Simulated assay, not measured.
Amino acid sequence: MFYGILIKMNWCDNDKHHLPHFHAYYNEFEASFDFDGEIIAGSFPARQTAFVNPWTLLHQYELNANWKLAIEGEQIFKINPLQSGVY
């Protein structure tokens, strides 16, 4: 979680969505993002999307590693939040 944005990756979510992705939540908004930081489903405020995009790019390696673990039914690991002054 960072800047009020909750990021989740669901275990075994590959059955429903074959594209690697994660879910982001902010207040009443929910969206799925690919690992390039683009929204693939749902809607998200532009300001919060502007925080999710650089976080995604900074953590692509970890996101891909977690996706592989998730589709194998393994426990995923926590990825550090976006820190102020990072981008």
Results as ranks from 00 to 15, higher is better:
I79P: 01
G4H: 11
I79K: 01
F35I: 00
Y87I: 00
D15P: 04
I5D: 05
F51Q: 12
L58W: 12
G37E: 02
E38K: 14
C12T: 10
A46S: 15
G37K: 03
I71W: 15
A46P: 15
S43C: 13
F2D: 01
K8S: 00
L19N: 12
Y3S: 03
G42V: 09
Y87N: 06
F29D: 11
K78D: 13
H59F: 05
T56M: 04
T56C: 03
A41T: 07
G73V: 08
N14Q: 04
E62M: 15
G85R: 03
K8W: 03
F44W: 01
E62A: 15
E28T: 09
H18E: 10
H21S: 05
F33P: 12
S43G: 14
F22I: 04
H17K: 09
G73C: 08
G73P: 09
H23G: 02
E28I: 07
D36Y: 13
E38R: 14
D36I: 00
G85F: 06
N66L: 09
G42Q: 06
K8V: 03
V52C: 15
M9P: 02
E74P: 08
F29E: 10
Y25E: 06
P45C: 10
E30R: 08
G42L: 09
N27V: 12
A70V: 02
I76S: 03
L58F: 14
P20W: 07
F51A: 08
G85S: 05
N10E: 10
P20Q: 05
F2R: 00
L58S: 13
D13H: 02
A41H: 01
G42T: 07
V86L: 00
L57S: 10
C12F: 12
F35M: 05
R47S: 15
G42H: 02
P20D: 06
Q75C: 14
H18A: 07
N27A: 14
C12K: 15
E28H: 06
E38N: 15
I76H: 04
L19P: 11
L6M: 12
P45K: 10
T49Q: 13
E74M: 14
F77C: 09
A24Y: 00
Q48S: 07
P81H: 07
K8T: 01
W55C: 00
I39G: 10
Q60P: 04
I5T: 04
K8Y: 01
W11Y: 12
I39C: 08
E30H: 04
I39T: 11
V86C: 01
K68M: 10
M1A: 13
I5G: 02
L69R: 14
M9N: 03
P54T: 02
N10C: 05
E74R: 12
Q75L: 14
P45D: 12
K68R: 10
I71L: 14
S43A: 15
I39P: 11
Q48H: 08
L57N: 11
N14E: 08
L58C: 11
K78W: 10
L82K: 02
A70F: 15
N64C: 10
E72A: 12
H23A: 09
F33W: 05
I79E: 01
Q75G: 13
N27F: 08
I71S: 13
F22C: 01
P54C: 04
K68D: 09
N53T: 15
G42D: 06
L82E: 01
G73N: 09
I71P: 10
Y26H: 06
F29C: 11
V86W: 00
L82D: 03
G42F: 00
W11A: 14
